[in-house]
Computed example of a mutant assay.
Amino acid sequence: MKLHYRDLGQGTPFVILHGLFGISDNWQTLAKYWSQKYHVYLLDLRNHGRSPQSTDFNYDLMVEDLSEFITEHNLVNPVIMGHSMGGKVAMNFALSHPNQVSKLIVVDIAPRPYPVHHQDIINGLNAIDISTMTSRTEAETALEPYIPETDVRLFLLKNLYRKEDNSFGWRMNLAAIERNIAEVGRETIADVPFTKPTLFVKGGNSRYIQEKDVPSIQRLFPNVQLVTIENVGHWVHAEAPEKFYQLVVDFIG
């Protein structure tokens, strides 16, 4: 599958993968700063953003998509970074394609399995009748009973776009995501560890990476640094952009 992407800058190739319900635009602001040092590639994963949609949705396929992208664009020794679901893609890719990665950055997700915990979001998105909707305000109003946090609602509604006939549509394939939602929490496993430099970044207020996850992280990624940015949640890069920017630059070099 040929993924939609945008790229900025010159230098070391730096591939960034968004999380579930995200799009490449989520990283645009930080990418502009990183592009002063690196050649940044912002990808839309399958069934997200402007990338093709498919009834099939799992990590094996997303890893294949990423490998195809790296090969097609002749990226040599790229740094791969992923947040949340994108972090799972990045982990799986590094473990299965170690020769196509120079350094790995995983943002606020661990290798362990996660139970399905996105049902409120899915129910809220399904409650939006985009066939009759005339404004984003209507969509946010429909979503509010399911998602009380304003910032999360606005994040999700970035997936809405206006079609040529002025009606609304979703950038994401909500039906495929819902049908395969258990895949998103799938455990990351491998017989052979990824031994190149790896950085795990945890949000201090987030529960996605816990103390119990450290042994599995160190087993799969023995050359790892685990850094906590305090007083932020799961969206580490959005809540502490300056600290996160510098942490990534110091790691990549």
Rank of each mutant, 00 (worst) to 15 (best):
D65R: 02
K103Q: 15
D44H: 09
M81T: 11
N77I: 01
S54K: 00
F93N: 05
L75A: 01
L61V: 06
E72C: 00
Y41G: 08
E72F: 07
S51T: 08
M91S: 07
V63C: 12
Q53K: 13
V79D: 09
L43M: 11
E72L: 04
N58P: 01
R46H: 08
H39Q: 09
F93Y: 15
S67R: 03
H73L: 11
T71N: 05
V76N: 10
H73C: 12
F69Y: 10
H97D: 01
Y59M: 07
N47G: 02
Q53R: 06
S96I: 01
F69V: 08
H73K: 13
S54W: 02
P98F: 01
K88Y: 04
D56V: 09
I70Q: 11
D60R: 08
F93V: 09
K88L: 04
Y38Q: 05
L42Q: 08
G82C: 13
F69A: 04
G87C: 15
E64Y: 00
Q53T: 04
N47L: 06
A90V: 12
A90F: 15
T71W: 10
V63H: 02
K103A: 12
L66G: 07
N47I: 03
Q53A: 03
A94T: 11
V40G: 09
V76L: 15
A94V: 04
H97G: 00
V101W: 11
Y38T: 07
H97A: 03
M81H: 11
Q53V: 02
M62D: 08
D65A: 05
S51Y: 02
A94D: 08
S96E: 12
Q36R: 05
F69L: 11
N58M: 06
V79F: 06
F57Y: 14
K37E: 09
E68V: 03
W34H: 03
S35L: 04
G82R: 00
V76W: 04
L45R: 00
S54H: 08
E64G: 00
S67H: 09
H97R: 13
S96D: 06
I70G: 03
E64D: 15
Q53W: 10
S51L: 10
S35Q: 00
N77D: 15
G49P: 05
V89Q: 12
H97Y: 13
K37N: 09
N99A: 15
T71R: 01
K103P: 14
S96L: 13
R50C: 13
A90C: 15
Y38W: 00
N99G: 06
H83N: 14
D60E: 10
F93W: 13
V79L: 11
K37F: 11
G87M: 05
R50I: 00
N47H: 04
V76D: 14
P98R: 07
L95Y: 05
S35N: 07
L66N: 00
V89W: 12
V63N: 03
P78M: 12
N99V: 01
P78W: 12
S96F: 02
G82I: 05
D60H: 03
V76H: 08
L45C: 13
M91G: 10
